[in-house]
């Protein structure tokens, strides 16, 4: 049974609030990079897209989710806690002395497949798992979430070529296309567009969607198990860095940090307002 878009939007709002509070409490975390991909994660984990079992994180038949943009760990940790992989209390200790995980993604957290933070690597591991699944005749899917800035890494394109050549149609890459890097907008920095053409020319099926539309996300991520294609699929999800908290969106200075003091209060209000508008 499908989960309604309304329920998923509600879930996204909850996750945003929990994530924001976690980072404000910790005084750190890549808040804007997390906000841009929360809807994607909610679609995957709550939209009945991925197969997983929080009680058995190592379940052989689970779909694999590889967060290649490891700086969005606050988003994934919050979703994993919410789905029951671990006690949500642990979020209160994010990046703190007595906590067990911090700013970049850590493979020893239940539900997390890899350590990432160094960009351009998780994608290759995802392709390796997808190839292994093919060799083993396992039917699980491998999802991987890339940052758009991550696509500057040459290793991304080594893997893109490899995955298409090896017909890894069990591999689904999602690019969180929020247009921002650390210092500037990508198109000012080194243009990444035309992104669809790049991926197509590397042999991938390409979808481009609004990455904050739960309906579009669920729609494009559905029925992937019976996809009639021998190519891997990339979904370029156009997003906004900081989505949901307007006062910190679309400004490079908010990369990699968490709002503090008055700014934190403003951010909370922004998020409340945006949730109210839904």
């Amino acid at each position: 049974m499908k989960v309604s878009a309304g329920e998923l939007k509600k879930k996204s709002n909850e996750i945003r609030k929990t994530m924001l509070e976690m980072c404000i409490r910790a005084g750190t975390g890549h808040v804007t990079s997390s906000l841009s991909c929360i809807d994607i994660l909610v679609a995957l984990y709550h939209g009945r897209i991925m197969k997983y079992d929080p009680a058995n994180p190592d379940w052989d038949e689970r779909d694999r989710f590889i967060l290649s943009k490891g700086q969005a760990s606050p988003a994934l940790y919050t979703v994993l806690a919410d789905t029951g992989f671990f006690d949500p209390e642990k979020l209160n200790k994010f990046a703190q002395k007595d906590g067990s995980f911090g700013v970049h993604l850590q493979h020893d957290v239940p539900g997390v497949e890899i350590t990432s933070g160094s960009l351009g690597q998780g994608f290759g591991v995802a392709a390796g798992i997808a190839l292994g699944a093919k060799m083993n005749r396992n039917l699980y899917l491998v999802f991987t979430l890339l940052g758009d800035g991550e696509c500057y890494e040459g290793s991304i394109w080594e893997t893109a070529m490899f995955a298409a050549h090896n017909r890894l149609n069990n591999l689904i890459a999602i690019v969180d296309r929020n247009y921002l890097c650390v210092t500037d907008f990508t198109e000012n920095l080194i243009a990444l567009e035309p992104m669809e053409d790049k991926w197509k020319s590397f042999g991938w099926d390409v979808l481009r969607i609004n990455g904050h539309s739960i309906e579009c996300l669920v729609d494009s991520l559905s029925n992937l198990r019976s996809r009639r294609a021998n190519r891997p699929l990339v979904i370029i999800a156009d997003t906004v860095k900081g989505e949901g908290v307007e006062c910190i969106t679309n400004n490079p200075v908010w990369h990699g940090i968490s709002p503090k003091g008055e700014e934190a209060e403003t951010a909370r209000l922004c998020l409340e307002r945006s949730c109210g508008n839904e």
Binding site: F123, G124, A127, I129, L131, G132, M135, N138, G154, E158
Partner: peptide
């Protein structure tokens, strides 16, 4: 042939693919 993978001249990819294959039990 099913146990042999040529990644081309792409050593970074070779290591990450190797890691992924290992995670898939190889």
């Amino acid at each position: 042939p099913s146990q042999f993978v040529n990644v081309g001249i792409a050593e970074q990819n070779a290591i990450t693919i190797a890691a992924g294959l290992r995670l898939a039990g190889k």
